[in-house]
Design a protein around this nucleic acid. Structure first.
Length: 725
RNA sequence: GCCGGUGUGGCGGAAUUGGUAGACGCGCCAGACUCAAAAUCUGGUUACUGAAAGGUAGUGUGGGUUCGAUUCCCUCCACCGGCACCA
């Protein structure tokens, strides 16, 4: 059932629409990742418009410049076109003009990374060519601009300096015309008033300007500067980029964004000069890299047959290991022998591809291969048993690239018939980085000698503030640097095995999960681990003290004293909280904290009667089960101590008992004007009037009300009473 | 520059749907035990003020919405991640 693979198959842009829409079917993925991917794909609706070249100036009248715009409503404000340095027309202009050629060279030298392009100084050069405005027929100049990239859209943009900030800055710098064709609502409304007075001119802006009185009227609408600019025929402050109403746009005057979009689209479509189009910011994925390390691209270049795939029985192409590195070039590129091969199609001499795949290529489908070890194909039928991945975990730094390629590849495999699912992973957790403090000493040449945190002693003042640090070996001070991601270059890596050796794996795992929620960065700091060790030792000691007591009956919920009930309720509250923290919130730190609270509470619960011992048994059994996923080894030992024969991991996860969770009374905060002034104990389900009366009767509260009149009382059952005076 | 995130005690962090800010842990202080130390246990620990009870302020900045804001909205600042070849 494998499909014939069409030519567009490997283009990620062919999947742009699906990659975007399927984000809506990923409830188990974090919102920030989905938002970043949505923005990265960047779907936008607009018009593609052709600007013909002016006959008298163009080197070839067949030339035209195609632009894409999401703001066709500003079309009548176009005063020039900006094209990329690699645009065919730019290259044509460069052929006869050394200044232009030099400018293009300069653009090439600049970085192509989006961050470089967006932060560099906006520069341009006039090509000397003119295009024709598709509606007004005006001649408009064509400029080359360093911020227009060939890889985006069509490599050319229509410039509307009046209503685009970047175009505005460019036009101001090079003294190009700026037209106002959109006005905001405030200006429109003010003009509307003037228009009613005059009524005899169809162009409201002209009417307003024709009168000697508009300024004071407009001033009230808060648009004075815009209006003054218009009087002078230029926008001086900055571009007006909001949506609004069209002016100075001939037949389109008075239309809003939507109306203008439709009218202009219709007009251009009728004239064959433009059409509606959906554009994506997403670019195609170039998968080849000019380096040695990597998976060779299994393609063969034949002069007669073109590019021919390596036959399947010769896969995989193995990277030669017996190579010599010389300079920066890949050794398989330098080696004239390795690439020699006969063409599998015609049998003539041919050459292997010497580029290797981008590492993102393999990381895009390894998870699928893991389901089918030894499979002859990429995967076999086992993939459909395991996939999609239930829980995928990776760093947030992969939010865009890896996780988009990952989704793309899964859809490719689906369309090739390898898997049936549409998305590779149901749930995604992006964990933070492991960071640690850095320490250094400055060397005479100003460079830094980084010192490992394990070799440093921290000095603190009497208020426990860090005042300095010393090297353990010589006792001399060292400088304290930033807290950064663990790295070799900053020598702040700490091997957890040292800690595991000292405290055991359970303690270290407990510590690393307790230190911060998984999606935040984790500070690896030895100080906290002592607390975890203490907690486990207390649990061990208290549990063994409990099992050394005489046997006890089952818990009899009806026979429990209020104190026993409270203790038992806390057990079930903890079960409910830990279950939710593990299953829904991934909040392991708070799950552990509530187990600690439970241990603190049971340590104070020292009654020795039978039912107390029964409740205490429930505390320890539950706590051991709740901690098992984090501390399996000590949990198993404690489980055995509690008298169980079966392994702890085989036991069912505890469930919170509704009956045990029930409360008779609840503590309510009482506020006066939003400030906490006291608390009251109210029976659950008490009437509003009764609760209000209790709140007003509270002495701390009444002291703050004094002789004032109570205006309003807000009561949120189970939470607060707020008395407004 | 753009997109996303973060900012809370001395420190890591909690507050889940707008409802008692600082849970839990570290550190620190005091006490108990001890000849002593370690370990352990008990109590305290946001700041200012006050003998105390308490009062006032307080969650990066400045504003706003609300009876009530760490939480929602706007502004700004700092830091972290990504920006398509980290060859």
């Amino acid at each position: 059932e494998k499909r014939e693979i069409p030519q567009w198959f490997f283009k990620i842009t062919a999947y742009a629409d699906e990659l975007l829409s399927e984000l809506g079917n990923l409830p188990g993925w974090p919102d920030p990742v989905k938002i970043m991917q949505r923005n990265w794909i960047g779907r936008s609706e607009g018009l593609e418009i052709q600007f013909a070249m002016d006959d008298g100036e163009a080197p070839n009248t067949a030339d035209s410049i195609t632009v894409f715009t999401t703001r066709p409503d500003t079309l009548m404000g176009v005063t020039f076109l900006s094209i990329a340095a690699e645009h065919s027309l730019a290259l044509k202009a460069a052929a006869s003009n050394p200044d232009i050629a030099a400018f293009i060279d300069e653009c090439r030298r600049g970085g192509t990374a989006e961050a470089d392009v967006e932060t560099q100084e906006k520069k341009g050069i006039d090509t000397g060519y003119f295009a024709v405005h598709p509606i007004s027929g005006e001649k408009i100049p064509v400029w080359i601009a360093n911020f227009v990239l060939m890889g985006y859209g069509t490599g050319a943009v229509m410039a509307v300096p009046g209503h685009d900030q970047r175009d505005w800055e460019f036009a101001t710098k090079y003294d190009l015309m700026i037209k106002m064709v959109i006005i905001g609502d405030a200006v429109r409304d003010a003009i509307g008033e003037l228009d009613r007075d005059v009524r005899n001119n169809s162009d409201p802006m002209t009417t307003a300007l024709g009168e000697s009185r508009p300024i004071d009227v407009i001033e009230g609408a808060g648009a004075l500067s815009v209006f003054e600019d218009f009087e002078n025929g230029i926008i001086t402050k900055s571009a007006f980029t909001d949506y609004g109403t069209l002016v100075n746009s001939g037949e389109f005057d008075g239309l809003d964004f939507r109306g203008a979009f439709d009218a202009i689209a219709k007009r251009l479509e009728a004239d064959g000069k433009g059409e509606r189009r959906v554009n994506y910011r997403l670019r195609d994925w170039g998968v080849s890299r000019q380096r040695y390390w990597g998976c060779p691209i299994p393609m063969i270049h034949c002069d007669r047959c073109g590019i021919v795939p390596v036959p399947e029985d010769q896969l995989p192409v193995i990277l030669p290991e017996n190579v010599r590195f010389m300079g920066v070039q890949s050794p398989i590129k330098a080696d004239p022998e390795w690439r020699k091969i006969t063409c599998p199609s015609c049998g003539g001499p041919a050459e292997r591809e010497t580029d290797t795949f981008d590492t993102f290529m393999e990381s895009s489908w390894y998870y699928a291969r893991y389901t089918s070890p030894g499979a002859k194909d990429m995967v076999d039928e086992r993939a459909n048993y395991w996939l999609p991945v239930d829980q995928y975990i990776g760093g947030i730094e992969h939010a865009i690239l890896h996780l988009l390629y990952f989704r793309f590849f899964h859809k490719l495999m689906r369309d090739a018939g390898f898997v049936k699912s549409t998305e590779p992973a149901t749930n995604l957790l992006c964990q933070g980085m492991v960071v640690a403090e850095t320490f250094f000493r400055e060397k005479p040449d100003g460079s830094r000698d980084w010192i490992n945190p394990a070799d440093v002693e921290i000095e603190k003042d009497e208020r426990a503030r860090v005042v300095g640090a010393r090297l353990k070996s010589d006792g001399e001070p060292v400088e304290i640097g930033a807290t950064e991601k663990m790295s070799k270059s900053k020598n702040n890596g700490v091997d957890p095995r040292t800690m595991v050796g000292k405290y055991g794996a359970d303690t270290v795992r407990l510590f690393s999960l307790f230190a911060s929620p998984p999606d935040q960065s984790l500070e690896w700091n030895e100080a906290g681990v002592e607390g975890m060790s203490r907690f486990l030792r207390r649990l061990w000691r208290d549990l063994h003290a409990h099992v050394s007591q005489p046997d006890h009956p089952e818990v009899d919920a009806i026979a429990l004293s209020p104190k026993q009930k409270t203790m038992r309720r806390q057990v079930h509250e903890t079960i409910a909280k830990v279950s939710d923290d593990f299953g829904r919130r991934y909040a392991f730190n708070t799950a552990i904290a509530s187990c600690m609270e439970l241990l603190n509470a049971v340590a104070k619960f020292t009654d020795m009667d039978e039912q107390s011992r029964a409740v205490r048994h429930e505390v320890f059994e539950s706590m051991v089960l709740l901690l098992t996923p984090i501390t399996p080894h000590i949990s198993q030992a404690l489980w055995t101590a509690l008298g169980h024969v079966d392994p702890v991991h085989a036991h069912a996860w505890p469930e919170a008992n509704e009956e045990a969770l029930r409360k008779d009374a609840v503590t309510l905060a009482v506020q006066v004007n939003g400030k906490l002034r006291g608390t009251i104990e109210a029976p659950v389900g008490a009437a509003r009037e009764a609760v209000e009366a209790m709140a007003l009767a509270n002495s701390d509260v009444s002291a703050h009300i004094g002789a004032s009149i109570v205006k309003k009382v807000i009561y949120v059952p189970g939470k607060i009473v707020n008395i407004v005076i």
